[in-house]
Design a binder for these strands. Structure first.
Lengths: 181, 181
DNA sequence: CCGGGACGTTCACGACGACGAAACACGGTC
DNA sequence: GACCGTGTTTCGTCGTCGTGAACGTCCCGG
């Protein structure tokens, strides 16, 4: 299924509007193909591009290659079946860690408040304050082999992001968008 | 002067190769304009795009707007959720630093008066005069890793701007003259 | 030309709170 | 019984923020 994530979807616009929506939600790269007379869309997402038809084959391939390149350095970590998968490998998660990691991956690159993490980890009956710290610590140690890290924002929360040196530009843009929303 | 940072550079390719290099180094958004018969470049940077000439004016404008939108969430520093984000990375801020940085980023590149900063940092009950200086110092040290700097305008206030590593050439020359005199 | 004052920079310190980390205890499972 | 998942206690470390003081620099009046 990961093969699909890196594959560029070619979408006729505006005919396939619904398919575009689904592709966006999946976070997959996509190239919009515009018929003559169609207005060019303005979207900031680095994984989306457009091209007016007819166009030279080479140009089309160049845009597809660019989107593929962005997507390949830009795979988001995902929580699947008690595991955290990222960059072609994965680590097992305990049930509680799964809830924590889920809350963090949903807002990848953005600050997730302590209370939000508390609610995610313990929907009812939150334990002592320190329990969260301990589980964040254990989660940290698990995911560092995936090239991920959890950074602290003191008195606010935590941020899940790429480890040192492997941050992709498009991710930064997206996480900043997420943070502002 | 700093208005240039968010502005999309229009670069004829491959005629203006050198200018392209400079623009890339600055991290500024750029749109390559290809003459007919030129091969389309494949670059993953979300702040770079290309277009084959001749092209409809609307299409050109659409691509420029997209680059501007990406640049605005990427090139200008922003205070979000207890962090200062800039150029793809970020640093945590203490609550007080967040208020200071907020006042400075709102007027990025312009002088912000001491009183304005005082009011931003301490809405009620301003502490000793020196407190502001100390916090500006600490903020300076934090943001230098982001390629940002706070410059002093004596008896007026402070200016938040790009650091020396990523300035336009004209700006660098100017600040070096100021320092050596 | 010199002295003094205003202003800015930097360091060191103290108090407090948030966070990190180790160690331990307990229950459930294979 | 060994192991894992989870929560708690305890203690150390580090961030935060105000203050005082030393030092440097600029400018102004004598």
């Amino acid at each position: 299924m990961d093969a699909m994530l890196g594959e560029v979807a070619l979408i006729h616009w505006p005919d396939e509007a619904e398919r575009l929506e689904r592709t966006r939600r999946r976070g997959a790269p996509r190239l919009l193909l515009l018929g003559p007379g169609t207005e060019a869309p303005a979207v900031a997402d680095p994984l989306e591009d457009w091209m007016r038809l007819p166009a030279p084959d080479d140009d089309l391939r160049a845009r597809i290659r660019t989107l593929e390149a962005r997507a390949s350095t830009d795979v988001l970590p995902r929580v699947v079946d008690g595991t955290l998968a990222h960059h072609g490998t994965w680590v097992p998660l305990s049930p509680l860690e799964e809830r924590l990691a889920g809350a963090l991956t949903e807002r990848f690159g953005a600050v997730v408040g302590r209370e939000a993490l508390m609610r995610a980890a313990w929907p009812d009956a939150p334990p002592s304050r320190n329990a969260l710290d301990v589980h964040v610590l254990r989660l940290r140690r698990r995911i560092e082999n995936l090239g991920l890290e959890i950074r602290t924002v003191r008195s606010r929360g935590y941020v899940l992001q790429m480890g040192n040196g492997q941050m992709a530009r498009s991710q930064m843009a997206r996480s900043q968008m997420a943070r502002s929303s």
